[in-house]
Amino acid sequence: MDMNAFLAKHQLPLSYQQQCEQFFIPLAQQINQAKQANSPLFVAINGCQGSGKTTLADFLVAWFTQHSAFNCIALSIDDFYLSKQRREQLAKTVHPLLVTRGVPGTHDVPLMRSTLAQLLAGNSKVPLPYFHKHLDDCALPAQWPTNEAPVDIVILEGWCVGSKPQSPAALAAPLNALEEQDDPQGVWRHYVNQCLKTEYLDLFAQFNYFVMLKAPSFSSVFNWRKQQEQKLVARNGIHAGTMDDPQLQRFIAHFERITRNNLIALPQQANALLELTEQRAISKLSFK
């Protein structure tokens, strides 16, 4: 495949090519072997913010396009966020923190379930939702792309893809300043957890192959997410959706509880585990 075009698209250094050859191609080959004849394969990719989920998903799509007969499509759970208006309504009726996109409970799960079901049923011309992060709102349905042909491999990537609910006891004490100051009674975190326990758990149970990009610790997330923010600024310029460091710290605090639990609970669930260093390089790939 044309690695130069891929590296340029994702603003990646030439050294990233070695990582692709050492880790991504063997992963693609394993997924290729997992694909059953006449049955679409549903692949999930989990990883904390800034871990490289979208880059990996795009690489897999490019690899399958060039090295197999399979039609592969990648979706981000981010594109299924509820509209700003619907999140504002949740903020009024459930808890103010739900105005911020990201956590379970801020996605349109019925739409996600319907979209994935149509793709996995082999349908073409399926509308694929899109979310404008710089506007913090959904694109109009008329702007959504569609798949031109039936899909053999569907990838869903996202920071909370595959996440597990916690016990009530684990939710009792606030984890960070955001929870302590904005959710002292635990209403928000219990709501998020209940969503994970019900509609998200049912959706995640459909995965055929689960990949995890595992950060060394939650402390890596800020630096990685800041690099991601800098790429967005370089691509789109400074706008209303751009975050400075304090805003970024607060934003990431919304994700901390589930991310920390993911680092503990998900590695043993993964069919393929990619372990990352503090510099966001892959140090190890293991298959279950």
Rank of each mutant, 00 (worst) to 15 (best):
Y209S: 01
L175W: 02
A205T: 08
L171P: 01
A173H: 09
T198Y: 08
S217L: 01
K214C: 13
A169I: 10
E180T: 11
Y191A: 02
V187E: 14
P216E: 00
V192A: 04
A172T: 14
A169V: 10
N223W: 11
V221P: 07
E179K: 03
L196Q: 12
V211I: 11
D202I: 10
Q185E: 14
Q194S: 15
M212W: 05
F207C: 06
W224Q: 04
E180H: 13
A177S: 11
P184T: 04
L201T: 09
V192F: 01
K214N: 14
N193P: 07
E199W: 08
V221Q: 05
W224V: 00
A172V: 12
L178P: 05
D182W: 04
R189K: 09
N208D: 15
A215R: 07
L196P: 05
Q181T: 13
D182Y: 11
K197P: 03
S217K: 04
L213F: 01
M212G: 06
Q181D: 13
L171W: 08
V187S: 15
S217V: 01
V221E: 04
S167R: 12
Q185W: 07
F210W: 02
W224P: 02
Q181G: 06
P216V: 03
A172M: 12
A172L: 13
P184E: 03
L175Q: 08
H190Y: 14
P216N: 00
E179W: 01
V211Y: 00
Q194V: 00
R189F: 02
F218S: 00
D182F: 06
F207A: 06
L203Q: 14
V211G: 01
V187H: 14
V211S: 03
Q166L: 15
C195W: 10
A170E: 14
N176A: 05
Q166M: 14
D182M: 11
N223Y: 12
F204R: 04
N208C: 08
V187N: 14
Y200G: 05
L196T: 06
L178I: 07
N193G: 07
A172R: 12
V221H: 01
W224G: 00
S167C: 07
E199A: 05
Q185D: 14
F210A: 06
S219F: 08
E199N: 09
N223F: 12
W188A: 08
G186F: 05
L196Y: 05
L201P: 03
Y209R: 06
K214Q: 15
W188D: 05
W188Q: 04
D202E: 15
F218K: 02
